[in-house]
Amino acid sequence: MERAGIAPRPFRKGDNMAKKKQLVENLVHGLFLLLGLITVGCVLLITLYLVVSGIPAIREIGLADFLFGRRWASTAAEPAYGILPFILTSIYGTAGAILIGVPLGFLCAVYLAKMAQPGIRNIMESAVSLLAGIPSVVYGLVGMLVLVPGIRRLFHVPDGASLLAAILVLAVMILPSIIKVSITALEAVPREYEEASLALGATPVETWFRVSVPAAKSGIAAAVVLGVGRAIGETMAVMMVSGNAPNMPDLFQSVRFLTTAVASEMAYSAGLQQQALFSIALVLFLFIMLINAALKAFLKGSKEG
């Protein structure tokens, strides 16, 4: 860092005072260093706790039985701890939310970044920030009272609390991040690219979708990955609309996600059951770390590209 290169020159009049001043400077420097390292400490703390508390149950149950077991019955007389239904539900739910949310958010972003008049753009951008600010329990509440009965009536299923309801809620919840990150990526495309395309006779719409979008592709990929992270980590809204039964994923069945599996049983769990919940959290954490690594790679690509 260049800024750090400018060292304060100690004032050489009273040597004692200069020494004292130096001492204070060093103390303050050390203090700020400590504050800077807190984030690193927190990440280590979280990793450590999840690994230490997540490993015992996996050891007892067996890694294969735990990850690929199809039955979760933690409170049964003969308990079974297979989390394949949760893993698959989380993957299907996230994929569904991405399938709906990404096209919607992406097209919105192209419109707002390239076509919209400044007035409309300002209004829509504040609307999108509002959407991002709505607490997840409010999404859950509206989902419970609008979406769930709606699905029940529309598809004639006994209960609307299902994977489909969770997918729809998640799709709305990831919209803001996808729109915001995609807009930023589209704005970063050099004007020359677009001007060249227009000069060659392409219309504005063709230019946006065939020149600007490909040029911004790694930024848009980052938006998608960010959406995946948000969707896979969401807990409360999903807990309120997905029914929470540990079934294998099916669009119209009550399902349980990795996040909701942890949250719904934590309150009354003990012993191996509780340890198994920590192991679920560890699996979720590993998923998130993978997604983070992908996000970092895409963002790096968009900076270089």
């Binding site: 990440v43 896979i232 959290a281």
Partner: peptide, 27 residues
């Protein structure tokens, strides 16, 4: 921004902050 001189340390701290902002609230 003001003190850190070690580039590696800076990127480590920034990476940790990014990681923190991606961790789901239930964790």
């Amino acid at each position: 921004t003001e003190y850190a001189g070690n580039r590696r340390l800076v990127s480590l701290i920034e990476y940790a902050a990014e990681t923190l902002s991606g961790i789901p609230s239930i964790i």
